[in-house]
Design a protein around this nucleic acid. Structure first.
Length: 222
DNA sequence: GACCAGGCACATC
DNA sequence: GATGTGCATGGT
């Protein structure tokens, strides 16, 4: 399996090149985006983040001091805006109290310790925590998301019943513990997920199908 | 006008 | 523990 995952990475990287992820200008923006994108199309998240930027509110203190109703209105395009306002607030309360709103300070905590802390914040689940760890704190924590799951199950790399930690462990035990590698790998999976697997079910033209000869055993669409 | 999207917490069994 | 449900916008 280790070889296979490495092979897949090399193939995708060779075909698609570096992905320059996460799509954000600052680590703090990464975190806000990670919370806003929960079960939500990224295009909607971009609109919400643009609203915050337009008003100069993309800082921990500015957001923490906003009224619920005002913040909810600003992030409305990203959907679930009442839930996400609470989640942003609970994160910001913790981030300001624990680290004074400093990413650099936060990065001083160990990967395992910080993951546990993040998961204790209401509204931060495994995927959001790992996204923050990897893309904002630059720690080698592999992110498993809907694209990862969908792509790997479709190509028979993992089983449908495998849970989050199982899939995460699979990557982390098969690859060098390297944040930049995890970054690129996850980004490449999202890339083909967005551009091939989602748009074209059972597609045979995605770089992964090209490598694995996917779906040969499946019947054609009727 | 359905159907879907980088989840998560909480209720219920 | 497993399984179900509410949360909501905007693109295709």
């Amino acid at each position: 399996m280790a070889t296979k995952l490495t092979q897949i990475y090399k193939h995708l990287y060779g075909k698609l090149g570096p992905q320059h992820w996460w799509p954000a200008e600052t680590p703090f923006e990464v975190i806000i985006g990670a919370i806003l994108t929960q079960n939500t199309n990224w295009l909607n998240v971009e609109k919400a983040i643009a609203n915050l930027k337009k008003h100069g509110l993309l800082t921990p203190n500015a957001l923490a001091n906003l009224d619920h109703a005002v913040l909810a209105e600003l992030i409305k395009p990203s959907g679930y805006y009442n839930v996400k306002t609470k989640r942003l607030k609970s994160f910001l309360d913790w981030f300001l109290r624990r680290y004074g709103g400093s990413i650099e300070k936060m990065k001083e905590t160990s990967l395992a310790g910080l993951r546990e802390e993040l998961l204790s914040v209401k509204g931060i689940g495994k995927e959001t925590a790992d996204s923050i760890l990897l893309y904002a704190a630059e720690k080698p924590s592999f992110v498993v998301d809907a694209y990862t799951y969908r792509i790997l199950t479709r190509h028979g790399i993992i089983a449908a019943e495998d849970d989050y930690e199982t899939i995460k462990e699979l990557f982390e035990s098969s690859l060098p513990e390297d944040a930049q590698l995890f970054n690129e790998y996850h980004a490449l999976l999202v890339n083909i997920g967005k551009n091939y697997c989602v748009k074209i079910p059972r597609c045979k033209i995605c770089p992964l199908s090209e490598l694995l000869g996917a779906y040969e055993s499946e019947n054609q669409e009727t």
